[in-house]
Amino acid sequence: MQGLNILLQPNVFMQLTINGVAMGMIYALMAMGLILLIRAIGVMNFAQGELLMLGAFITWGLTYQVKLPFVLMIPAAMLCFAFVGVVFMFVAYWPLRTASYPTATVISTMGAAMVIREIATITWGSLPLVSAPLVKGVVRVGSLRLQYQYLLTIAIGAVLIFLVFVLFEKLYAGRIMQAAAQDKYAAELLGIPTVLTTAATYIIVVTLASVGGYMIAPVFLVNVTLGTLQLRAFAGVVTGGFGSVKGAIVGSLFIGLVESYSSTFTTTYKDAVVFLVLIVVLLFRPQGLFGERVADKA
């Protein structure tokens, strides 16, 4: 490791920053899904990483096994993600929604994570699979070498996040979904079909994570250990402020950058550095960087 002062070299700083933001985008896609599920259903989803992994496998399968051309692969993948979202909801959440122990739903997601991993191993084997990047190669800006795949990840991730944001904050349908998430009983009395809104939420969450998996697969190879990335997403959610969508996104980007810069002085203790930063942030700002608190008055 070269030590922190290598960051003073503009090349290195720039490349590590792009790297960090790209990884941060992947974490943000997962983190956004986590927050949506927490707010909509009150479930902390420990299978978020596995959803990312499944997305990588599904897109790989559609591209290399079913051999669909790109223009057909995208809509086919979207259909698969929707299918996975609905199945995930009905298997891991639906039967337990009235359980007397609220932790039942959380444990169910842990079980779901294992099942998804095993299904992936049975279907595609345990050897990692290679997936070609959307655009190969690097773009040279002066003496900078920026990989296209990282730049695309940042762009596509940002677009997706923006779209979901617009849905929930600006569109009528988004407000209906928020209402169903905040008070299911009142929502049903008004005529909101809460099964549909819950399913829609799950579909959005799965799509976000799966796209993340698709974007990162060419860099990391498609294999079942991709699920471990979810730890960073959790860190991003907590750093940004639990319950806040903005916070989850900013927190995740922050974690991505911390991870990238920390490689200048350690690579084996990367996880420890990330969580150390998390603890420091929480010590000084327990509600996270953007913590919101929605309380019920009266």
């Binding site: 490349q15 190879l221 250990t225 471990t228 490689s263 690579t267």
Partner: peptide
Amino acid sequence: YAHNPDEKQFSPILTQ
């Protein structure tokens, strides 16, 4: 440069 056995993110190390 050390790396963890399950590491997938080598870009920061390679950049350095």
